[in-house]
Design a binder for these strands. Structure first.
Lengths: 215, 215
DNA sequence: TATATAATGTAATCTTATTCACATTAAAGT
DNA sequence: ACTTTAATGTGAATAAGATTACATTATATA
């Protein structure tokens, strides 16, 4: 693939969303789409869609039919699905962990969760959404064995750093962290944090703001 | 409260994070903190912390002791905890719903989830994390009765719009949506979307990018 | 009381992200 | 073949967000 110019984070996020929408359209046998339609589906503007496509070097649209859906999918895949993307390890098989297992492994999505880990004896050996649960002690070997490069942390905050260290020393280079904790990692490791409590507080704030000032 | 200048979204997010850290510090009997320490805890920079505090009109710091923790907490509370913040309705008591119930209702947090809703007969009447589950048909009455103004959607995407419409017509003005779907709402309603699949794809992309280019 | 020190508070700058605006263009209709 | 039409593709303008840089300042120490 072309050596791109460094794609903005926001664009990457939107590409993932466009892709899902496009796959759905494709399964409905549609072949073309306009920027304003995709914008509608992704809840943004036509100009934003066109700019994102421009950024990834996608200029196969035409004024009378829009963009070919297959063409867009190929372009987006070539950006998002990097060659040697590894599998995912999920640590912490509580309610949240189970939710992620059962809905990341049923959606069409590379990468997928290849192994789950927990300390609870009860859970070890169980299979949830076709993903087996191992004890933490086996992390290093399983990560190697299954070609895992990413981790999802769904353990209570107190354990989050310990789990992070284990993942990193096993060779993981990307982490999605659901624990409300700031993780220390070497700076070749990418961490994304999802803080649900914070999101709730944010919604509370802006819901109020909207009704005060009418958006 | 002071009529603020309109606070940037990113600042609101960080305030929620600062607050959690500060509460923890307070519970450890600390009384003061420097911007660089808070930055460390929140994984950002001292300048960012000071700017955020400036934005909310917080200038009670002093060069020799930093900021009083109680003072910061009061200031942040006065921004985030708006007077008449309502309670939350959670719709969809699957794994994800249960996860949110049990960890949003054990953390100290206004607002909290006051009612859960589901279509599954099995679940109706059950109490999860001290929150009772009702049928969708009772949404309107419960929302009024319990002073609910916010909704969390954890149903499969196909039902997300239907649930949204019900919430909105019951009077909800802020929604946190976990379904990978774009919701249509009147424009006095604030919607925040958390798209876990997208986040995974993002981590995959940037983990790769980091190891290619060393951050 | 004066001095040294290390943080604060903020204006100015730089960077990233979004929107505007319009010349260009591909097909459908005349 | 020509005209019309409604999107595309993109430079330029604007807005939003983060960082820099430094004058100011509260206390500890001499």
């Amino acid at each position: 693939m072309k050596r791109e110019e460094k794609i903005p984070a926001r664009t990457i996020e939107r590409l993932a969303i466009y892709r899902r929408q496009l796959l759905e359209l494709k399964s409905n046998r549609l072949s073309h789409i306009y920027s304003h339609q995709l914008a509608e589906l992704a809840n943004n503007t036509p100009a934003q869609v066109r700019r994102d496509l421009m950024i990834i070097g996608c200029s196969g649209g035409n004024p009378k039919q829009g963009y070919g859906i297959d063409y867009l999918l190929n372009s987006i895949n070539s950006i998002l699905d990097n060659d040697k993307a590894g599998q995912i390890a999920l640590v912490g098989v509580g309610d949240l962990g189970k939710a992620i297992l059962s809905y990341s492994n049923y959606q069409r999505s590379t990468p997928s969760v290849a192994a789950a880990f927990d300390i609870d004896e009860e859970k070890i050996g169980k299979v949830i959404a076709s993903c087996k649960c191992y004890p933490l002690s086996e992390m290093k070997t399983k990560v190697k064995e299954l070609g895992i490069t990413l981790g999802i942390i769904t353990v209570p905050s107190v354990y989050a750093q310990k789990v992070t260290d284990k993942l990193v020393s096993a060779g993981v280079t990307g982490i999605l962290n659901f624990a409300p904790a700031t993780l220390r990692v070497p700076n070749n490791v990418f961490v994304e944090r999802i803080d649900i409590t914070m999101e709730i507080e944010k919604v509370a704030y802006f819901a109020n703001e909207y009704s005060r000032l009418g958006k």
